[in-house]
């Protein structure tokens, strides 16, 4: 039998990417890497949206992806600015060092 590339493959792939991103976000301390993990999670979600858009034949899912991309771009701008500001103040970047908001 031939391997049929059904929608569920895409969904599983998206879930795996999301899990990688989520775990990476929690275990890594480098802000840049954490950032990339966030991007992974976002794009996993995008992939899910596109898949369902195709499966359900509804263009709305693809439209949402554009919104997500725009928000992600904005978030990267702000987030990178923060990271650069932190890098200027201290050597090396460690998310756990930045814990001034401790209760």
């Amino acid at each position: 039998m031939t391997l049929q590339l059904t929608g569920s493959w895409y969904l599983v792939l998206a879930a795996m990417i999301f899990a990688i991103g989520a775990v990476g976000l929690m275990v890594r301390r480098n802000p840049l890497v954490m950032f990339m993990c966030v991007e992974l999670m976002l794009n996993a979600v995008n992939l899910t949206f596109v898949t369902f858009s195709r499966l359900l034949d509804d263009v709305g899912g693809q439209a949402v992806v554009f919104f997500v991309l725009v928000v992600a771009a904005a978030e990267v701008v702000v987030g990178l600015a923060i990271i650069v500001a932190i890098m200027r103040r201290r050597q090396g970047a460690n998310a756990d060092d930045v814990s001034l908001m401790r209760g």
Binding site: V98, S99, R102, G103
Partner: peptide
């Protein structure tokens, strides 16, 4: 009593969200 819930570590917040 509620202070420990706010450790200041981004990663533990992320864990909480997850």
């Amino acid at each position: 009593a509620l202070r420990p819930l706010q450790p200041g570590f981004v990663r533990s917040y992320a864990l909480g969200v997850a």
